[in-house]
Every structure is written in C-alpha cells, then in structure tokens.
Design a protein around this nucleic acid. Structure first.
Lengths: 339, 339
DNA sequence: GTGAAAGCGCTAACAA
DNA sequence: TTGTTAGCGCTTTCAC
C-alpha cells in the first residue's frame, strides 16, 4: 500500500484533490468540517505525500545541499550539526555531501546537487583553485554560500574567519610567553584562507621578534596523520623550535602524540597551539591551546545569507568576516624549567 | 538561464522531446547523426536535466538515505565513507542524516526520507527500543537495511557484528595476560547489540576467572566525555581493576586521558581496550588495543542487501552477522612491573 | 528511428 | 469555500 496518493485521500473524503491539497498543506483553512474529514481520511489511509511531485510543481524542494571537504574532520562535522539545526527550524532538510578532500569528488557532488535536488548549496571548498570551476558552474545554477574555506575568485556570498586577527592572537600569545622561534604546521592546499594565515603568521612573528625558519614551515594536510608526520620532520631538522603553531587541531594532536613517542613532552619541551577548537582539544593530554572559530555563528550567518539569496537572487554578494577567540590551555602553559 | 529544459534542447536540435530524452538518457541509440546534433545542442545550451522531474516520472530518485546516531562519532563517519563509495559506483547519491542521538530527531529524518525523497534507507538506529516505532513506519514505506546497531523487533535486513565472538576475543586476550579483575565501560541505551555485549563480557569473564564487580560496570554514552566521566567514577570506587574494557574507542580514549590526569598510566597501572578501531586509535598515546569492526565489508553488504530489496521487495529478510578481529596495541602491552 | 501523446502526484490560477 | 483545469519536466508506451 505505498500508492496512497492525494487523489486516494480526496475521493475517500469526498472532495477534490485541490481541496485536499489546500487542507493538508495548510494553504487555506476551508470549512472546518470538510477539513476534519480530509485529515481523518489522510491519517486513516496513512497518506504520506510525495515530496518529489510537490517539488516539481512548486519549483522548490525544501532541501539544502552542503558540501564539506572531509566528514572525518570534527570541525566540519560540528559545523554541519549547527547548520542542520538552523535548517530544521526553517523546515528544511540537509543534503550532506563529503568531498573526501578531492576536487573531482566535490565536482561530482556539486553537479548532482545542481540538477534540481536542492534549493541552495552551502560549501566549504576543498581546494582554493581546483575547486573553482565546479563551484562557478554550481553558482550559476543555484544560490551558493561559501563558509569557512572559500575560493577567492568566485563571486558568491561568503562567511569566513578573520584570519589575520586570528593568527595575530596566536602569535601574540606566544610572544607574551617570551617565545623567540617557532614552527608552523599547515595545509595551504586547503584554501585561500590558509595562505592568508601563513602570511599573517610570518608578519606577526617578525613583528614580535619570533624567528620562523623556512624549513620550519611544514605544508601538508589537516589530519592527525600529517601532524604525526610533521613531528617526525621537525625532529629531523635537528633543532626543535620553542613553539609549534598548527593550522588545525587534528594536526596539533597528531603532532603532540608523535612528539611524545619521541620522548618530547608538551608543554615542558615545546609549546603547541592548534586551530578550530574541536571538542577533542579539551580532552587530550595535555589539553590544547587553540583558536576557537565561532562555528555556531558561522553556521547561522551562512544559512541566513543562503535564505536571503534564495528569496532574492539578484542581491549583491556579501562577505562576512567573523572573529575568532583564543582559548589557552595546558599545551602552552609555562612549566618550571631549569635552564 | 536556469530554465533550459529538455524541450529547449529538443527544439534547438530539431527533434521531439522523446528523441532527445532517449539519446541523452541513453535509453536507445538512434541515428548517430541526430544523436550528435542533440548532444551538441545539450552541451551548447548547458542542459543539466531535472532530476526531480525524472524521479517523478520513473518512480526512482537515485538517492539512498542513511541515518546515523551521531555524525561526531568517527566509527559512523567512516561507515558513511565506505557506503558513499559503494553507492557512487552504482550512480546513487547518499542523503546523510544525523539523528544527534535523539529518537525524536531520528523519527523526523526518517519521516522526511519516506516521502519519496529516497529509494531506500540505511540506518543505524540510535536506540534499541525508542527507535522502533519510526523504523517500522519507514520500513512499511520503503526498503530499509539496518547496519551495525539494530532494533531487535523490526523485520528488516540487518548487517551486524557477531558480538559474542567479538567480546570473547577481547576477554580471552586479557585472560591470556593473566588479568583477574576488570571493569566494563559501555552504553546499553545504544542498541540491542550493547546488551548482548554486556552479557558476553560477563559470561566470558566468569568463564576465564575474571572478576567483574557490579559497580565496575559503567553505563553511559559512546563519547570522549563519558569515557572521562567513567574514569572519575572508577577512581572513586577505590580499587582500580587490572583492566578496563570499553565498548567504544572514543570512551576508551577519553578514559585513558582522564586517568592520565589522575596520575594513572596505561598500560603500566591498568590495561585498557577499546572497540571499533577508529583511526584515532592508532594515533593516541598509548596506542589502543581494540576490536576492529569490518566496516568496509559491513558497508558493502548493507548496500548489496538494500539494492537486492529495492529490486525485489518481497524477498525474505536476511541477517548477516560479521566477525570482528582483535588489534593489539600498546594499551594492553605488559610492561615490566615490580610486585 | 522518430514523433505524438499520456501522465507520474501535486499545486495554483481561475471560475463557480 | 470548493471544483475544474492546466501543467511543472521528464519518460515511455504506442503508432508510424
């Protein structure tokens, strides 16, 4: 009995499909008595409605697509949770896609979203340049908002972090701890953002008299594995810096753990900072000093911008830059040290 | 120009919509020359096709829904990755929903999936009993396969872990290490599975002469936070057991970290085992002994069963029970110990 | 090999 | 307030 359609309900209630539709979708009230009859017939028959047909007719699906670089990065899954909550309040469904850090996969997902499946797309592109083509194609077909990561050249709405302010907070914190040299573990392939952050780290470091050796800038992925690898690489450079700034919490945690295997203890031997403030950051040993991105606000603003653009496709595009905040924890706690 | 429809392409190529449809969807070859004309017109106009209309007409959407208890549990996100890969090979899209560990949210997600959005549903129900009503409703409307967790009473296909064999491997490993008493940190609300595992732990422990005090069975969530809390609770019982068996890797990691804050070292002072083998398990300090669930196989089999049921709704329902394997790492490494 | 026409299930004019 | 009618964009018989 999966074929109980609006017509079934209508004839059971002795009304036209139009009336049944109006009552069940709440378009107009109608006579209370017929309304009751229709509703009763609907529940009795177990009428579910067909969202496909409705979408075809209305030109709106009630679905929003979201494409993230990696579903195994807690930062993004947390962002997804917030977005999902905001969308649910507007009676919208989330269609989540994982690009698996591959621009090809990302392009495929975007293409399938473009074919009428969703009313709008939220995306954190996985690459700053390789993602552009697919993103532009998508943006031409459906409202798009980029959040967190972004492609510089694409003219969509964006909700991003104020990277310069963020890195400045991190570097100033280290400077206040009297750090004279540091390393930077990052992933510039990820986004324009990452390039900005690198520039900011360099600028603020030199401004505060912190030395950043070229071979102490390590460029890889945002993952536990890369953090561990970066630790190995740093060990091989001979001279460990006084502090290691990481572009993501996962790499920071991977790095700290691998350092421990090398007998290097944080913060005793070296200070480490993360980035994002994923929930794991407060549950590691040591707990992690990190830059908290305002995930909830980012999600809310991204959804708001997307809704605005769906209702009003021609409005000028907006870039919203939000500030992060520094969360200091054990990984940069000065310990008593003989020297 | 978002309104380039099949009719646009057809008239541009000077053919009927029927022909255009056949050629573009590859239903029948047709004359090579007209085919070329149609295809050219399509690309030239940037024709995308409307999957909603196609779905309405064909009665198939090409979408599969997947509902997981928590998107912040790496075990499930990893499962999702495998499922997504398998589906992509069959040209199917994944519609991922996060139940946020709430049967209510889960029910809402399921309801929206049932309304024609997807051709089938994969689900790991978040609760063993509270999830049943919504699950049964869904299963009445659309093919459903449960994987990993399951609701006992629902007559759907299932792909699950052989829990008894799994816990037996864990307990035998500890017994071989001469463990005489242990604790069990779990979450029985999660699934029937968890109850079975508890029974198995009890049975195999007593079989191997391992004592499991009632107040050493700690029932909470599958999360880092609960692991930490369980550590605190265990400390308060006064006598720490020789080993702590955890029902999930996240809780094991949370527990180990909190123990470290209490000055308790693993495996020196107490052995710890996890469950699932998430990727983090090999990147912690110490690395974690755990039971690996055959995630890839689970995903593959679940997708296979779902496809089979979509093609053949009346086939008898299948329960597939897969074996796990024990991965021994540092957290149960016997260290030299004076005593 | 191709076209004409019907219709998937629903909603929105427009009448009544 | 309710019914009639048209049609969203596509696929698919059924003729030719």
């Amino acid at each position: 009995m999966p074929d109980v359609t609006l017509a079934t309900v209508a004839s059971a209630a002795g009304v036209s499909t139009a009336t049944a539709s109006r009552i069940l979708s709440g378009t107009r009230a109608g006579d209370p008595r017929t309304a009751a009859r229709v509703r009763q017939a609907a529940t009795q028959l177990g009428y579910q409605g067909n969202s496909i047909a409705r979408a075809l007719r209305r030109g709106r699906t009630g679905n929003i697509g979201m494409v993230i670089p990696s579903i195994s990065n807690p930062f993004f899954t947390s962002l997804v949770e917030h977005v999902e909550l905001d969308l649910a309040q507007r009676d919208l469904n989330l269609f989540l896609c994982d690009a698996r850090d591959s621009p090809q996969v990302e392009a495929m997902r975007l293409a399938s979203l473009t074919r009428g499946t969703v009313d709008g797309v939220l995306i954190s592109p996985c690459q700053s340049t390789a993602s552009q083509a697919a993103l532009d194609l998508t943006a031409a077909a459906v409202p798009v908002v980029q959040l967190d990561r972004y492609v510089e050249g694409s003219q969509t709405d964006r909700v991003i972090l104020d990277d310069d302010q963020a890195m400045r907070l991190v570097v100033e914190h280290l400077a206040a701890l009297d750090i004279k040299n540091a390393a930077f573990v990052t992933s510039t392939a990820g986004s324009s953002s990452a390039l900005l952050r690198l520039a900011s780290v360099k600028r603020w470091s030199s401004h505060h008299g912190i030395n950043l050796r070229p071979d102490h800038v390590l460029d890889g992925q945002f993952s536990l594995e890369w953090g561990a690898e970066a630790a190995d690489k740093l060990m091989r450079t001979g001279a460990l810096p006084q502090a290691i700034i990481c572009g993501g919490d996962l790499s920071a945690i991977g790095l700290i753990t691998r350092l421990a295997h090398h007998g290097i203890s944080v913060p005793r031997d070296v200070l480490v900072t993360g980035f994002d403030d994923i929930s794991l950051a407060s549950l590691t040993m040591p707990t992690l000093t990190t830059l908290r991105q305002p995930r909830q606000l980012m999600a809310a603003e991204a959804v708001r911008l997307l809704m605005a653009r769906i209702d009003q496709p021609e409005r000028p595009s907006t870039v919203l830059s939000l500030s992060g905040s520094l969360i200091t924890r054990e990984s940069t706690r000065r310990t008593v040290k003989m020297s």
